[in-house]
Computed example of a mutant assay.
Amino acid sequence: MAIFVEVLTKIDIGRTLSLPDSRLQASPQSQRSHGDGGEKLQVKDDVGILWNFHCTIRSGVVPKLDMVTGWIQFVRFKQLNTGDVIVLNKDDDTLTGLHYKIEVFKGDADDYSSFVHKNGI
């Protein structure tokens, strides 16, 4: 189930990615652990690499998680650019339990449109 879709901006690519905290509230403790003034979010990519993003909590009218540590490494590894799309999914597998997955759509509007249509986003 897709819980977050973002068309990447210059700030997303160069510095940090912000997620609405409410989208991750129900996440399991093993995937999202508190400590060091922030959160650790573990996410698997499309080839099975586990990424550990350290997030800080930004307060405000709508609290957000800012992915700080690990995000730029992900951006570089995936060679992301402005206009690419990421989709964060929450997947409840009967064998492995609840976990997060991240998908990347690199400037291919047809692939992303197909994903949106299939998942009703």
Rank of each mutant, 00 (worst) to 15 (best):
Leu8Trp: 01
Leu8Lys: 03
Leu8Gln: 02
Ile11Tyr: 09
Ile13Ala: 02
Arg15Val: 01
Arg15Phe: 08
Arg15Pro: 01
Thr16Val: 13
Ser18Cys: 14
Leu19Thr: 01
Leu19Val: 15
Asp21Glu: 14
Arg23Gly: 01
Ser27Cys: 13
Gln29Val: 11
Ser30Tyr: 11
Ser33Asp: 08
Gly35Ile: 05
Asp36Val: 05
Gly37Leu: 02
Gly38Gln: 09
Gly38Thr: 05
Gly38Lys: 05
Glu39Met: 13
Lys40Asn: 10
Gln42Arg: 13
Val43Met: 04
Asp45Leu: 09
Asp45Val: 07
Asp46Met: 09
Val47Met: 06
Val47His: 11
Leu50Thr: 13
Trp51Leu: 08
Asn52Trp: 01
Phe53His: 00
Phe53Trp: 07
Phe53Pro: 03
Cys55Asn: 04
Cys55Leu: 08
Ile57Pro: 00
Arg58Ser: 08
Ser59Ala: 08
Ser59Cys: 04
Gly60Cys: 06
Gly60Gln: 00
Val61Cys: 03
Val61Gly: 09
Val62Ser: 14
Lys64Arg: 14
Leu65Gln: 08
Leu65Glu: 02
Met67Leu: 15
Gly70Gln: 03
Trp71Ala: 02
Trp71Glu: 05
Trp71Pro: 01
Trp71Gln: 03
Ile72Ala: 04
Ile72Pro: 00
Gln73Tyr: 04
Phe74Tyr: 12
Val75Gln: 07
Arg76Tyr: 04
Arg76Cys: 11
Phe77Leu: 05
Phe77Cys: 04
Lys78Ile: 05
Asn81Thr: 08
Thr82Asp: 09
Thr82Glu: 15
Gly83Asp: 10
Gly83Gln: 12
Val85Ala: 00
Val87Asn: 02
Val87Phe: 07
Leu88Gln: 04
Asn89Thr: 05
Asn89Gln: 14
Asp92Thr: 10
Asp92Cys: 04
Leu95Gln: 12
Leu98Tyr: 00
His99Ser: 10
Ile102Pro: 09
Ile102Thr: 02
Ile102Phe: 11
Val104Cys: 10
Phe105Ala: 07
Lys106Trp: 03
Lys106Ala: 09
Lys106Pro: 03
Gly107Ile: 02
Asp108Leu: 07
Asp108Gln: 07
Ala109Met: 12
Asp110Lys: 14
Asp110Phe: 09
Tyr112Phe: 15
Ser113Met: 13
Phe115Ser: 08
Phe115Leu: 06
His117Ala: 15
His117Glu: 15
Lys118Thr: 15
Lys118Asn: 11
Gly120Lys: 14
Gly120Ile: 03
Gly120Val: 04
Gly120Cys: 09
